[in-house]
Amino acid sequence: MSWSQVEVTGGKVDVELLPFSGPEGARAQAIVRADLIRTLLIQVTSGAHARFEATAAMGSGSLTGRIIDRRQKGPPAERTFTGDLRTIAHQFADMITQQATGVSGFATSRVAFISQDTGFKELYIMDIDGANVQRLTADRSISAHPRWSHDGALLAYTSYRSGYPDVYIVKLEKRTRSRVAFFPGINSGAAFSPDDLTLALTLSKDGNPEIYLMPVEGGSPRQLTHNRATNTSPSWSPDGKEIVYTSDERGSVQLFVISAQGGSPRRLLTGNAYSSEPDWSPDGKKIAYAARIAGEFQIGLYDLASSTATLLTSGGGQDPSWTRNSRHLVFAHGGSLYLLDSVTKQIAALPNGLSRCSEPSVSP
């Protein structure tokens, strides 16, 4: 059936969750309810005033979900999901989010991050609701800069386990890792190209830290930037044609964009004296970054069409990472992780039971 789009800018869309049937119905409903609230776009309520009505029937390893727009005539949208309970509940929550708001849900996403909960900076992953926390490293060293491959199968990160900063790739299904960049000097901040075949990363093997490109499986890197500055934190445009990165070639740390083929970079004027940690949105329209203002970092947003920058937070924030819908961001502040709606600027905590968390990266 066709659905009218509900544009959510300020207020929230009311959704009534009717009881889920089946022995696991109550548990699944609780997961879906929490997912919908976490979108910051939906108010789970009851009564005839709610525009949307959703329910589900739970079977053995399956969930058949239905959602009705009470303002539209026609049959409900219905879909059956199969798999483990948490996954299918998250999938149904994403279906409700899409149907009710016109915005893609992200309940099935995962987050890679760094935590010093053990006293060392180790690499972790979790579901975006903070559940299923798994520690991937136990190196008693420094891990940093995790980044997902676009197929969600790999994680690149920087580790000092050898005593020097090297880039590793973890194959999540097999829980194996390989060291792919270990040149003399700095090897850091690797990011996967959209086709997952190339890494953009910082190397200092030829002198100062520059942005290079190299095959994911390892091999000879190609130098992209050429200056006497420190160039770090590359992030690809979704079409793979450009890379945004940070450089202090003008004195302070600023954002620059360069063609993936090389050439002259262009500076993005954010209006801040210090802008770092860029992340290009999946729709290609925006770049999130961290702006240092009066000694504290805030989350900023650079709109590429208008060449304008705005601040999304006022209470602090670093390490922004887009969700797949190019509207929500996950960021770190004060050792905790948070979700941010970049339109309404609302924020929700993502508790995971760990302390001293930083550098989140959201799976595609």
Results as ranks from 00 to 15, higher is better:
L312D: 15
L329C: 01
A57L: 07
I128L: 15
S342R: 06
L213H: 13
Y168P: 04
D151L: 11
D84V: 06
D206M: 00
V244H: 12
V244R: 10
A93P: 08
T230K: 15
P75S: 13
S259L: 06
Y245N: 02
D206H: 04
N132K: 11
G335I: 14
L255P: 04
G25I: 07
G47T: 05
A305P: 12
I125W: 01
D248F: 02
V32Y: 08
W322D: 04
Y164S: 10
V111Q: 06
G83F: 10
V15S: 03
P76Q: 10
S149T: 01
S159F: 09
D196W: 06
V111E: 03
F183L: 11
S361C: 12
D84A: 11
N208F: 08
R147C: 01
F182E: 10
A131I: 04
R356V: 05
G47K: 04
T55N: 13
Y289N: 05
S21Y: 01
P75W: 09
V170C: 07
D341L: 06
S306V: 09
L340N: 02
S252W: 12
V362F: 01
P165S: 07
N227S: 12
T82M: 08
P194T: 01
E210S: 00
T246F: 00
T310V: 14
A34W: 09
A291P: 00
A144I: 05
N208E: 06
A229D: 03
L36D: 12
Q254S: 14
R51A: 11
Y274P: 00
R79D: 07
G10P: 04
E277P: 01
V253Q: 15
A50R: 13
T232F: 15
R267N: 07
G119M: 04
T158Q: 14
T108V: 06
Q318N: 10
G207Y: 05
Q346P: 03
G105F: 03
S2M: 14
I31Y: 10
F52H: 09
T97D: 09
S264D: 07
Y289C: 08
D248R: 08
N208G: 05
D151S: 09
S104L: 14
Y124M: 11
